[in-house]
């Protein structure tokens, strides 16, 4: 059973890159079992198809415009995800929603797909997260870990034995 944790977004545009920041935090702090991949997807499009198609379970972390108070963290699952992602005007030529559609067309859609999203506060040019979103990062990391725990995955915290 392969699990892919995929953080996407553009790290040059402050909160747009929050998904990638979460991936790097997870990698720094935890060691994951071999069948779990923690991937910085950046703004890549079709290059990610092999990863998505090879996954049985897919957990996406991304900044999502949901008209909620800034920094709101939310969870979405199943068939609602492609619809939500396709509403996002992403700069990715072939966005994640298209990727999922292609995987479905090819009959290689992961059996479970979950999205953890956060309402961005700033999409200005910059490498740093906004204070509002930065304050939610720890919570988002915990949410990702909880989701993984539900799937029976327990990473080992680095530096602990």
């Amino acid at each position: 059973m392969k699990t892919l944790v995929l953080g996407v977004g553009n790290i040059l545009l402050s909160d747009e890159g929050v998904g990638v920041h979460i991936i790097h935090l997870l990698r720094e702090r935890y060691q994951f079992p071999q069948e779990v991949e923690i991937l910085d997807g950046g703004t890549l499009g079709l290059d990610l198809l092999p990863y998505v198609e090879d996954a049985d379970r897919l957990l996406i972390v991304d900044a999502v415009q949901m008209d909620a108070p800034l920094g709101t963290v939310a969870r979405l699952e199943g068939d609602r995800i492609p619809a939500v992602l396709s509403l996002q005007h992403s700069p990715h030529q072939m966005g994640l929603s298209d990727l999922l559609a292609v995987a479905r067309l090819r009959g290689r859609y992961p059996s479970e797909v979950v999205l953890w999203g956060i309402q961005p506060a700033s999409l200005e040019v910059g490498l740093e997260l906004s204070p509002t979103v930065a304050a939610q990062v720890e919570g988002l990391v915990q949410s990702v870990l909880m989701e993984l725990e539900r799937w029976g995955i327990q990473p080992i915290r680095r530096g602990e034995t």
Partner: peptide, 21 residues
């Protein structure tokens, strides 16, 4: 750049599609 902070038409998603923790 991704989004125009001044002139972008934001595509909105209704919050009731979401479950907030």
């Amino acid at each position: 750049h991704l989004l125009d902070a001044h002139g972008r038409e934001v595509t909105r998603i209704r919050l009731n599609d979401w479950t907030c923790p």
